[in-house]
Nucleic acid binder design. Structure first.
Lengths: 333, 333
DNA sequence: ATGAAAGCGCTAACAT
DNA sequence: ATGTTAGCGCTTTCAT
């Protein structure tokens, strides 16, 4: 597997008896080339297997046709719908998606941003809000379109497609209260967004006179089925009167469901369970899971649209978009 | 958000009172630059927020420091461990990961390969074997290191890290037979790899005198919990004597577990269930899931190693690696 | 409709 | 240890 010298536009040009420029045009603007010439060029291209060097083209045209996405975990199911929709929407518009994993370590985060900015992508999609001052500065300075997602802030770096985690907390609290549950408990990871939801839930609970401070059980991120099981155990040990659990992910909720079953607790009779994410499996569980649905597809598609609009110089009428959420009421609460 | 003209090495060079080349060296080979000069350059770099243009550097040095991964689905949990490990191992070596979704449509697949080859990545990781003749030709012609994964073939394009799906089928068949199950059924998607496992399972079953043709229930890809539930229903309707189900994913197996419970079937007493993947949740289920463990981490890390070795011109002693698999015996079978 | 010249920003190769 | 020159492969710009 010795690397054979790859063909260049000049090679193709020579073989087709035209200039390099005509080859470039035949590839990128076929309508501006005479049909006969086009045919000839295409012939040579397919015979040689020529694929243009995108680094050279991108360098000259300052269009990388690349979008970078930064995710806290590559592995969590939560953002998958978003990533899938983003990838598909970008693909339709002729962009490739590059992914990077953030979180955990501040210095790794800097290195990741650096690696991304080096490639001069046409846009960067952040899952969550960029809080680091240095990171914000870097992104602003790079002048690359940025879409922050999955959260709201009054001061985005650039563009935003998200929803309010606090309002989710409030809504779920009201939802449970309305159904007669009086001793809710919060089960979740200790990340920024989960904290916001807890804050909203607790405030609503105070306003409803439920509890001065709704108890919470924290589990390590990322949330797993196993931590749902052990988390419920912990919750019932420390707060035996608990009659409802709001979980910060559907996976966690599934763990709670399984643990409840193992303990002979009926759901929702003795314990209500609410998840977050409305993952594919939520509707198929027994009992079917009541959960908070977030339209990840819309987030992904909108982010792609924003970036493409920017790259094409189109104005964006509403660059800060709150897409809201929906409580999907099924059998578990 | 007007794009401010980004700094170049020349700007930095001017401000630091050195040549562009020295800036380049200070950034890439700091040891070859006098300490005082280095300090000066770094000072200017951090003041200007300069980030070198990777397209220009890559063009000149023909090192993109980029690896492309092609996955059948971005969303399935099956390859996540592989992708996570791949990303991490590449990251440690200073590469970025670009992902693309294959499958579904042959013309989309060509476009994806084209988009990847354009970027002249340092390597391409394929999840599964590339069967398309045209695709193989393109990849060979591009001279980019290719690692095929998650399968075995005597004729890889280049390098390979995988395991035998046929042998998995055989092994699970023997496993179930040994435990006294005599009426197994196969539940899975109708993809290449699942077919290989079914083939292996059926051959072993014939050799063991279990059945001339072990029955199978096919579900659409990607496999879901819901199709596990409906699949079990279908299986019991058409083959009421079934006493064991080998599912082509853990998610499917979870669906089978839930459906069995809903029907009052005891597992493994009346029905044995075996999954594939050993996903995080498998051990935490009730009953804990017996499943086939594939070391996705090793696949990902090895693929990264192979590509880096190639890029650095190191010889690879064993470029075709069978990492095998392991049946993790838990409570469900 | 096509071509020639120039240069995108960086770094390999060769001085000094 | 540092600088100079040249050129990676393409596309923008300006001719023709």
């Amino acid at each position: 597997m010795k690397k054979p010298p790859a063909f260049t536009v000049h090679d193709v040009a020579r073989l087709a008896g035209v200039s390099a420029m005509t080859v470039s045009r035949a590839l990128n603007h076929p309508e501006r080339v005479a049909p006969a010439t086009l045919l000839k060029v295409r012939e040579v291209v397919s015979q040689t297997g020529f694929v243009p060097n995108g680094m050279a083209g991108g360098l000259r045209s300052s269009r990388a046709r690349l979008v970078a996405a930064v995710l806290p975990t590559l592995t969590g199911p939560v953002f998958q719908e978003t990533v899938r929709a983003l990838n598909q929407a970008l693909d339709e518009r002729g962009y490739q998606l590059m992914i990077g994993q953030s979180g955990y370590d501040a210095s790794r985060e800097d290195a990741l941003l650096d690696a991304i900015i080096r490639r001069r992508p046409d846009g960067i999609v952040l899952t969550g809000i960029m809080h680091s001052v240095e990171g914000r500065r870097q992104l602003q300075a790079a002048g690359i379109p940025v879409v922050e997602t999955w959260d709201l802030t009054p001061t985005p770096i650039d563009m935003l497609v998200g929803f309010s985690h606090e309002r989710i907390g409030e809504s779920v609290c009201h939802f449970l209260h309305q159904r007669g549950y009086r001793h809710p408990l919060l089960l979740g990871a200790n990340d920024d967004r989960a904290r916001l939801r807890m804050g909203g839930f607790r405030r609503a609970a105070r306003e409803l006179g439920l509890a001065a401070e709704v108890p919470a059980v924290l589990v390590p991120a990322p949330t797993t089925l196993g931590s749902g099981r052990s988390g419920l155990g912990e919750a019932l040990a420390s707060h035996p009167g608990t009659d409802a659990v709001f979980c910060s992910s559907d996976m966690l909720a599934l763990g709670v469901l399984i643990e409840a079953q193992a303990r002979g607790l009926s759901v929702p009779g003795q314990l209500a369970v609410v998840g977050l994410g409305d993952l594919e499996f939520a509707a198929s569980l027994q009992p079917a899971l009541t959960t908070v649905r977030i339209d990840g597809t819309r987030i992904g598609r909108t982010a792609a649209q924003f970036i493409d609009d920017r790259a094409e110089g189109r104005a964006i009428e509403q660059p800060i978009l709150d897409i809201g959420f929906e409580i999907v009421s099924r059998a578990s609460a």
